[in-house]
């Protein structure tokens, strides 16, 4: 299994360079995106680009293409992370109910005495 099953050097090398070009292009897009499109939701646009880049890396550089078992495992782990995000961010924090009485948000409303220690004594 560990042996050399006919490497098509030129062909695989060409794939590497093509992917590199794609990644460089996406990196360039990263920089002009705020001035170009989706300026109101930079966060979303940036993460979208990152996902595409990650996809390219995983499929071609990490040779995940055609790996059924490992692919399924990767997807399972990613889904798990996604679920953590949905529950913690989507369900819990986005319904944060303690703003007024909280120590951990900005002391604008109430409780200034608690959180902002005076700079001068």
């Amino acid at each position: 299994m560990g042996t050399n099953t006919s490497v098509n050097y030129q062909e695989e090398k060409a794939v590497y360079y093509k992917v590199l070009a794609g990644l460089l292009l996406l990196t360039a897009i990263t920089f002009i995106q705020p001035h170009l499109f989706m300026a109101q939701s930079t966060f979303l646009a940036q993460m979208l680009i990152a996902v595409i880049k990650a996809w390219l890396i995983v499929i071609y550089y990490m040779h995940l293409k055609g790996e059924k078992l490992i692919g399924a495992m990767v997807i399972f782990a990613l889904l798990l992370v996604l679920v953590f995000f949905v529950i913690v961010i989507g369900v819990d924090v986005s319904h944060f109910q303690f703003k007024g009485e909280s120590y951990i948000t900005e002391p604008i409303t109430t409780g200034a005495a608690h959180s902002a220690t005076p700079a001068h004594h």
């Binding site: 990263t30 920089f31 995106q33 705020p34 300026a39 930079t42 966060f43 940036q46 993460m47 990152a50």
Partner: peptide, 10 residues
């Protein structure tokens, strides 16, 4: 990279 450097770019 994007989460730290780019989200505030706009």
């Amino acid at each position: 990279f994007p989460y730290y450097y780019m989200i505030g770019a706009a």
